[in-house]
Design a protein around this nucleic acid. Structure first.
Lengths: 154, 154
DNA sequence: TCCATTTAGTGGCATATACCACTTTCTTCG
DNA sequence: CGAAGAAAGTGGTATATGCCACTAAATGGA
């Protein structure tokens, strides 16, 4: 009844990825919501936390995200007092980022919720399957699409 | 040298998914850009195309996306004349969607570019691996996070 | 028949992300 | 040293997405 001839529907790797991201994103968001943070914000705070007062460009690189996008994403966190920035004294082009004391408290709170989400998700798909999936996703994130292709040169 | 002690960095399933989505999204976007469409728009046009003048809610369900988000995403495509909507005569609450002639032409153009992106991506990770990945992602998209948990019942 | 409920969308608001054009700083070199 | 070029951010603009409050239309009873 439904449909059996929808070839492309599930064939596009990018589309599959986006669908799964929307779905899982909603789940993690729901679970982390009690903290007042979105899952992306929890992830960003965590990334800042594990870095040593990282430069914005370093965070962007780690998250594979555009530098300007990071700048925008950071604003609500700065506005809410969870994060603060300061210029690197040795290179004034560089702006470093760190959590404020409240930011650290908030991250702790969010991480507990994240842990529940993570556990619940892994209970559903299996720890091994989750690990395999993350490995596959990390491989994609590490791909180099630049030119190594279509280079009929040499 | 880099870092060996960043446990959580890659441990969050949601974060891994987002990183991979940003990366792959940029790739597909770049490849499809010559058509003037984003990969998400190509995917949306395709979804509309394979449907039989689908209702907005049907499209949203298929893409696992919020109905209002779909409404917003549709706007630029309507503005650019690729898509048009019309009320269902039997149920005036329902708004159906279809491609315009130009929309169909544009989709054809974008699909050719999509195909190249798809081929190039699969040449890098392998057709089988890509298929496995999509299957895993589709499984996630099909998960039911509702309540089936925390239900010690039975 | 008439009202309470459900269903389908809309609009507003907020975050997530990208790209591009600039500005400010450094770096490199001649 | 001084100018060309690279590196790091900022702001603006546009799409991607989600939630919430609200409206209109259809449905299910009492």
């Amino acid at each position: 009844m439904t449909q059996a001839a929808l070839p492309g529907l599930t064939l596009c790797n990018n589309a599959s990825l986006r669908r799964a991201t929307r779905k899982l994103g909603q789940f993690y968001d729901d679970m982390i919501a009690p903290s007042g943070l979105k899952a992306t914000q929890q992830g960003l705070l965590y990334q800042i936390h594990i870095g040593d007062e990282p430069a914005m460009s370093a965070i962007a690189a780690a998250l594979i995200m555009d530098l300007s996008a990071l700048g925008h994403t950071l604003k609500p966190l700065i506005r809410d007092g969870y994060v603060e920035t300061f210029a690197d004294p040795d290179d004034r082009r560089i702006k470093r980022v760190r959590l404020t004391p409240q930011g650290l408290v908030k991250l702790d709170e969010a991480m507990k919720l994240w842990s529940l989400a993570q556990q619940r998700f892994e209970a559903m798909v299996g720890k091994d399957e989750a690990a395999r999936l993350r490995a596959a996703l990390d491989d994609i994130a590490a791909l180099d699409f630049d030119k190594p292709f279509a280079a009929p040169s040499r």
